[in-house]
Design a protein around this nucleic acid. Sequence first.
RNA 1: GGCCCCAUCGACUAGUGGUUAGGUCAUCACCCUUUCAAGGUGGUAGCACGGGUUCGAAUCCCGUUGGGGUCACCA
Length: 559
Amino acid sequence: MVRKTCFCCVPEVFSLLPEVSRFCPFKKQRDFLNSLLLTPVFNPVKQFTQQFYIKHIMVGQRVRTRFAPSPTGYLHVGGLRTALYNFLFAKKMKGDFIIRIEDTDQSRKVADAQLNLIRTLEWAGIVADESPEHGGNFGPYVQSERLHIYREYCDRLLEEKNAYYCFSTSEELEENRQLQMKQGLQPKYNRKWLPEEMGGSMPSGEVRRKMEEGAPYVIRMKVPDYVSVWFEDMIRGPIEFDSSTIDDQVLMKSDGFPTYHFASVIDDHLMKFTHIIRGEEWLPSMPKHLLLYEFFGWEPPKFAHLPLLLNPDRSKLSKRQGDVAVEDYIRKGYSCDAIVNFVAMLGWNEGEGTEQEVYSLEELIEKFSIERVGKAGAVFNVEKLNWLEKQYIKNRPAEQIIRTIRPLLVAELEKQRAEMPFDIITSDRYLEQVIELMRERVGFEHEFVTFSSYFFFEPGTYEEEAVKKRWTPETNGLLREFLSTLEVLEPFSAEAIEGALREFVAPKGLKAAALIHPLRILVSGVSFGPSLYHMLEVVGRDAVLRRIAKGIERISVPV
RNA sequence: GGCCCCAUCGACUAGUGGUUAGGUCAUCACCCUUUCAAGGUGGUAGCACGGGUUCGAAUCCCGUUGGGGUCACCA
């Protein structure tokens, strides 16, 4: 006997159609509903399609989404994306985004993780409307502070015979699991403690006896046999499960804490979330959650299961194959703009022929739609992230860059003696010039200091290969001669320097390159960098003359 | 192994029955150029396979293959 149940059906009310259409967040569906309004059709096929669309819409209800991490350490980039999509969806719909902390595993709890998680999200611009830090009307937002609530609802399940006590020990269960695996069966609880009155084989007296003994126990949900459970995923469409493949999930652990499955269903309901957007790894436990909603007689929220973020080898993104913590990327110097933009594009795109690649958070909110989220997993490709970071650096206002690099420079100046006056090289005017010369040549903001060190410090060494390539026996003589030209050059500007150099070189029948490359090497220490003339102008006459003179002393060429 | 999900260039993707299969990153070549970048132009490169449905399939259906997820008193 198979009972078909759809747990996600909103009662379809034809008269609501105009209303539904007006509130519908999805353009395509709105259009579809409007077309239905214009040409009412009642054939079964159309009705089915219409139900499909209505199921995705909550009429007149304020959208509430959540991100529910467990405080076990850092924020995973996959977590960031899940949080971001929840946030974007909520904000797009003028609703609320909430953070809830799932700390029901006390052994894995890490001290500062909660605050760190929330701070990191805020770094990315994802600010919660309600959270343990911000408060709200549906608190507490930390599951370990809601234990009495879970207990209460668990008692209800026990009473209504949808859950039962289980005294099997971990060893017993493990043994059972091994045996089943060896037989090629799906590991599943053998229902040893399912009481007689619930269709099991354990006499209720035995349960009572164990109880009185004070034996440790867990509480399991009784999954009905032969039930087909299905729902509409907002991203994937209809998905169906057979209850016979579902285990009698533990709801309450022996330490009195609920499991994820139980706590999250209770909280998602009590906190009135309308849409649950989470990772695809939760898809297999969907039937357990749906069954719980049915046990309680609650209408489930809409669900969307996001595709996974992948390693280059297409397995689930993991620590072993690179950085997964958002903090790692922050430490490396990635900006929130690039990270958020990048992560948003892994699995979502605007569609409709757009070729835009760079989006601000505001733009993402404006343009995001859950229906445009793809189904297939996406490889986290650092090269594209790097490119995005460069795009942002190219376009970021200089004053904003100055705010982040000045502290780095000052710290560097404490370690290393500057060649030029502190006040000058840390001034807005000076830094701005450095930024404009270097912004198309750096990959990260901190490289304005490290890659551009010759704007602040005398080069300590000269690139050996470059010296070998660019020096001839005449070079030092030419430099010495040109030095005196630079000494009196007025003004000491890029334009004037270029003019002087070309004038200097032409009568000698030499190419400008004969002097250009050696000059660059003496002044910067390296063979690459911005426009030579502009660089000389910014570094300034004093330092340039000093560096050239010193360089000539230091570089000796075999004649 | 059971269950579930997924499948367009190396990567991210556009594409919803008729396109020379488009864009971005990466890559290659050329141009620009004092170097390195940036920029410009162009190129290489893709519908996993097999059956249907259809006048016509990347697109719809079925199967195969491949990949992934999940099967805890972790989330």
